[in-house]
């Protein structure tokens, strides 16, 4: 077994690869989407170019901007990276897994969202306030659904720690669980709403009446905007890895040997490529919903997660 220094350096390496690879996932989604819509696709590393361009530019601040506005990009990135660190992506039982369980992970993402909403209202533009209130509406409906999904999974695995849960699912082999079917669909819907993808929010729009996430970061520029964009790319990847971990954990490295780590990385890339393709398909198939249809959408997600919990209690526990 490797020493604790090796373990920590492996964990650090995993987080660094996670952060560095996140824009690649966004580039991949854009590529698949372009292919599905018969458009000429941008190169897959285009998000890196955009980030590099933004990092070179000067920061422009509004006169009324307070310290909240200036520190928010760093807080958002730090919270998102911490959430990413708590996820077992390539290997389980790294020391970073023990720091935070899945409820803390949800908390990190909520912290990032809270600061983003504060910053959007800080400058005092109309669009910022409007988008912040919309974001909070979506979040207040999506978060209960997400937490119920998390409870179902941790009741099945007997732990809220992700590494333990992954280990339990791997250990019990291929079992058809009705609860997982519902929770998977519910969690997918929550992920679409939380990452601001198409039926709920359009990540590529600057149309004032429909934007949610874009509206909140409208006043940001240069380095600050780059940090926030990067954080939202990492967040997209967090949801992909979380869903892959819980529902398709096969391939993840449980022992720290070179072949199993290699296999874990290949499995992770394959799962994320599938996740990106799925998102691109959803975005091509569905039109953007009216804002007042979003609560209905999230209500269905909540109901699915609740059904997952109920079918776990009724059908699975009593046996």
């Amino acid at each position: 077994m490797a020493g604790s220094l090796t373990l920590w350096s492996l964990a650090l390496l995993q987080v660094l690869v996670f952060i560095a690879g996140a824009p690649l996932l966004t580039g991949w989604i854009r590529r698949v989407r372009s292919a599905l819509q018969n458009r000429a696709a941008p190169p897959i590393w285009q998000p890196y170019r955009e980030l590099a361009k933004l990092f070179r530019k000067n920061v422009v601040l509004a006169d009324e901007a307070s310290w909240i506005f200036r520190t928010t990009p760093y807080v958002v990135l730090a919270a998102t990276v911490s959430a990413a660190a708590a996820l077992p992506a390539v290997a389980t039982h790294l020391p970073t897994d023990a720091i935070a369980d899945v409820i803390v992970l949800v908390g990190f993402l909520a912290l990032a969202r809270f600061f983003l909403a504060l910053a959007a209202m800080d400058v005092g533009t109309a669009f910022g306030g409007m988008a912040a209130s919309r974001e909070m509406m979506v979040a207040s409906l999506a978060e209960p659904a997400m937490l119920i999904a998390v409870f179902t999974l941790s009741m099945t695995a007997g732990s809220t720690n992700l590494s333990t849960a992954v280990g339990y699912i791997l250990h019990s082999g291929l079992v058809l669980r009705p609860a997982f079917v519902f929770t998977l669909v519910g969690l997918l819907m929550v992920a679409i709403a939380e990452t601001g993808r198409l039926p709920v929010d359009n990540p590529a729009t600057h149309l004032e009446l429909t934007m949610i996430h874009e509206g909140m970061i409208l006043e940001y520029g240069g380095r600050h905007l780059a940090l926030i964009e990067w954080a939202s790319e990492i967040k997209l990847m967090i949801y992909g890895v979380l869903i892959a971990d819980l529902f398709l954990p096969w391939g993840i490295a449980t022992r720290l040997t070179v072949p199993s780590l290699l296999l874990g990385s290949i499995a992770l890339v394959a799962k994320l490529a599938f996740w990106g393709g799925l998102l691109a398909m959803v975005e091509t198939h569905f039109a953007k919903m009216r804002l007042f249809r979003v609560p209905e959408f999230l209500n269905i997600a909540f109901l699915l997660c609740l059904l997952g919990l109920l079918s776990h209690l009724i059908l699975e526990v009593a046996l």
Binding site: G173, V175, L176, R177, P178, V181, L307, S311, L315, L319
Partner: peptide, 20 residues
């Protein structure tokens, strides 16, 4: 749950789909 055969598990999944 894991003690059931695959058929038993399928019955449970189908039952939950009927509820759905």
């Amino acid at each position: 749950m894991a003690t059931l055969s695959l058929y038993g598990q399928s019955i449970l999944v189908l039952a939950s789909l009927i509820l759905f």
